[in-house]
Structures are given as structure tokens and as C-alpha cells.
């Protein structure tokens, strides 16, 4: 073999050893995962593959110095979420509300989107299957800090503790598991879930959710109903609509049906009673 060819072969072969990270495929399959599958900076590839950002290569966000190994970048080197997501009313409102929230006011001035919406795992409610899935996904962020636990047992124990703090509720656990935390912990007069309030201002009035025109309906269910219609067909959605929620279990047709049947029963009784009185009167007088 001629030396020249040797050199060429060596160089092209070395390409295989070149630093990973430049792959164009979705992050979960990217070369980064070779290292980031385990350890302190691990990303769970399965969960990443389910997330809203799954199509993005890692370097889309980890821009500065992460296209080679060892990395030249510091920290995560990620841009602000609003670099991509800004400019729409929904995101700008959310960003503004977070700045006014208890997390920023009383906690961490740097508290931001990613404290709750893990960029690696986040899946918006609209893409989470089923109602339960939604609340589980929405609450996961809160629970991660407010009822943390490394093992399932530790998690269950701190959930129990958290449930005790919700002493006003009947079925504490059920409420914690099936209702979005932000349903009660954000202002009731605004259609926002980002302006998380201090504990003292949390909603304690059952009726706000347990009624036909409920807060949950406004904040979540209208949107959920639409989604359920799309997933299950309108008949099932109509049947299930809000059905799990006492006070909002109201189904217009069933409510009208029961009303009409009751009126018919009362009318029938009235007519029967009138007939008894009338024919009795005739018998007595004839």
C-alpha cells in the first residue's frame, strides 16, 4: 500500500472516532446517548422519545460547544425557551405570569419554564393520552419538588404527607391524583395556570369545581372535551363528559330527561287523584 493511500485511509477511518453529537437524527437516538444514557447527566431515552422535543437533535438546544467531545460548553449551554417559543400570546402571557408567581416572588428569582416543563420530557396536555394521563403529567412537575421521593415508597410517603396538608378536602388522595394542582393554586378569575399563588390564596371553595359552570370546566374541561371527542367520538365524549366530577356530572339530556319524567309522574298522580275525588263526588251525590 502506498503511504499516501495509508494516510487517506487512516484519516477517513478516524472519522468514525470523531466526536459525536452532530447527528441529525432525533435526540434519543443521537450519539450523545452513548454517554448520557446513565450517570448524573443521564437522559432517559424512552421518556425523551415520548416528549414534545423528541425530533430535535440535542445540539439544537445545547448549542455552544456541544458539537464535539470533550464539550467546550459550560452548564447546559441552552438558550431561553422563548428564543424559539416567544412571540405568541400564549407563551408571552405564561412567561409574564410565571414572573408574578409565588415561585419567583417568594422563592427563586430565576425560576422559569424549565423548572416545571422539563425540556427533555415535557409533553403538552394536548398530546397526553387520556384524562388521567394529563393530570399525572401536569402534576408531575409540582410533585417533583413538593412531594419528592427517589424510590416509589419514598414518593408515596411524601405524597401522604402532602395529602395531610390538604386537610380540607374529602378524598384527599383522590383530589391530589385526579385534579391538576394548578386548578386550585392559580387565580380563579383568570384563565391562567401559570400564575401560581401562595398557599394562603389557594382555592378552598368546593363549588368552584363541583358545579356545572365549574372552574375546572373553564380551565381544563372545555379543552379536554374537545380532545376526548376527537379521541373517542362524540357519543362517548358526551357520555363521559365531566362525568367523574360530582356537581359537574351533569349531562344536559339526562338532566332534562329526569326532569320530564318527574313532571310526568307528578302530573299522572295529580290526574289520578283528581279522578278519584271526582268520581267519588259523583258516587256520593248520585
Amino acid at each position: 500500500m502506498k503511504p499516501m493511500i495509508r494516510i487517506v485511509l487512516f484519516l477517513t477511518g478516524a472519522l468514525w472516532l470523531a466526536p459525536p453529537g452532530t447527528a441529525g437524527a432525533g435526540g434519543a437516538e443521537s450519539d450523545c446517548m452513548g454517554c448520557h444514557k446513565s450517570g448524573a447527566r443521564a437522559i432517559d431515552p424512552a421518556r425523551y422519545a415520548q416528549s414534545v422535543h423528541r425530533e430535535l437533535p440535542c445540539t439544537e438546544c445545547h448549542m455552544e460547544g456541544y458539537d464535539r467531545f470533550p464539550h467546550a460548553g459550560k452548564g447546559a449551554g441552552a438558550p431561553a425557551c422563548t428564543d424559539c417559543h416567544g412571540g405568541t400570546a400564549a407563551f408571552d402571557d405564561a412567561a409574564r405570569d410565571v414572573k408574578a408567581s409565588v415561585h419567583v416572588e417568594m422563592g427563586d428569582p430565576d425560576f422559569g419554564c424549565t423548572n416545571c416543563h422539563s425540556p427533555h420530557y415535557f409533553l403538552p396536555a394536548s398530546r397526553t393520552p387520556g384524562r388521567e394521563g394529563i393530570f399525572a403529567a401536569v402534576n408531575r412537575a409540582c410533585i417533583a419538588c413538593h412531594a419528592p421521593g427517589d424510590t416509589p415508597e419514598a414518593g408515596a410517603a411524601s405524597m401522604k404527607e402532602l395529602s395531610l396538608m390538604h386537610g380540607r378536602f374529602p378524598h384527599k388522595m383522590v383530589h391530589l391524583q385526579r385534579v391538576a394542582c394548578v386548578a386550585c393554586h392559580t387565580p380563579t378569575d383568570k384563565d391562567t395556570v401559570h400564575l401560581v399563588l401562595p398557599k394562603s390564596k389557594a382555592l378552598g371553595d368546593c363549588i368552584m369545581c363541583h358545579s356545572g359552570s365549574s372552574l375546572l370546566t373553564v380551565k381544563f374541561d372545555e379543552y379536554l372535551a374537545e380532545k376526548e371527542r376527537a379521541e373517542k367520538g362524540w357519543l362517548n365524549a358526551a357520555l363521559y363528559n365531566n362525568a367523574y366530577l360530582t356537581g359537574a356530572t351533569r349531562h344536559r339530556w339526562l338532566d332534562w330527561g329526569t326532569f320530564v319524567l318527574t313532571v310526568l309522574a307528578l302530573a299522572g298522580i295529580g290526574i289520578h287523584a283528581l279522578g278519584r275525588w271526582f268520581f267519588g263526588y259523583i258516587r256520593r251525590t248520585s
Binding site: I207, S211, T246, G247
Partner: peptide, 10 residues
């Protein structure tokens, strides 16, 4: 009480 909860409204 059941009706009150079913037809609950503020």
C-alpha cells in the same frame, strides 16, 4: 343533599 350536590352552582 344529593340534588344539592348534583345541581351545585355558586
Amino acid at each position: 343533599t344529593g340534588l344539592r350536590m348534583h345541581y351545585s352552582a355558586p
